[in-house]
Design a protein around this nucleic acid. Structure first.
Lengths: 110, 110
DNA sequence: TCAATCGTCAACCAATCGGTTAAATAAACG
DNA sequence: CGTTTATTTAACCGATTGGTTGACGATTGA
């Protein structure tokens, strides 16, 4: 049986998908616009979005011929609870997060 | 290029490996003892431990013929920072974590 | 109506994954 | 010494992954 947690962590293990989530943090986007910065076919991005959607990390809503993707961080909460159990983590540190994203966006050859 | 974050999330995406981490939360263990509760060959567990080790989630130290596995939650911090950026998460809730572990240990057919 | 756009689907591919068994290495025991 | 114990390695297997291309259905706009 494949649990939600399996799906969430597997979804997060791919840098393209993490980059997509980071983009969606800014704003909701259509599939084509999500795909634009990547050197990869639209079909590939479509698959990534399906994986994110199955994991509950994004929601997709079709309006006309455009399918809008929006972040749905609720699935992350479960994973976060799991991880927190292992940590003496600092409390939420958004500065650290900003630095992290900058680094990721630099590294991921978008 | 495979980043640390890729390795950590991929490692966490398997229920056997999460169960191993949960066990190691209690105490350090030898490889054979880690393998004992699972219906799986020792070689398979050895591979899982290698994956956890490469991700930096555990450390292994050989003393005599026994290889001891201990939790190393430092790698989780990085992943935690990443995830926290997406969340309006409640502050660390260990009660929720305990419930979570109970459920996981029940579900994972150990 | 007809062409362009948005997105998915199907078929395919090489690489990786999670497991197996059997053999190999290394240390400890009697 | 030879045997048992602890663990990894190697070869193999079927399933999954992350990508491709090309065809397709649905919606929009001229």
């Amino acid at each position: 049986m494949e649990t939600r947690l399996d799906l969430v962590f597997a979804a997060l293990s791919d840098p393209t998908r993490r980059a997509i989530l980071t983009m969606l943090l800014e704003d909701d986007m259509a599939v084509t616009d999500v795909a634009e910065p990547f050197e990869m076919s639209l079909a590939a991005i479509s698959k990534h979005l399906t994986i994110l959607s199955r994991a509950g990390l994004i929601a997709q809503e079709k309006r006309g011929r455009v399918k809008w993707c929006k972040l749905d961080p609720s699935a992350l909460r479960e994973a976060s609870v799991w991880m927190q159990g292992f940590g003496q983590f600092e409390p939420v540190n958004l500065d650290a997060f900003e630095r992290f994203l900058e680094e990721e966006l630099r590294d991921d050859s978008l």
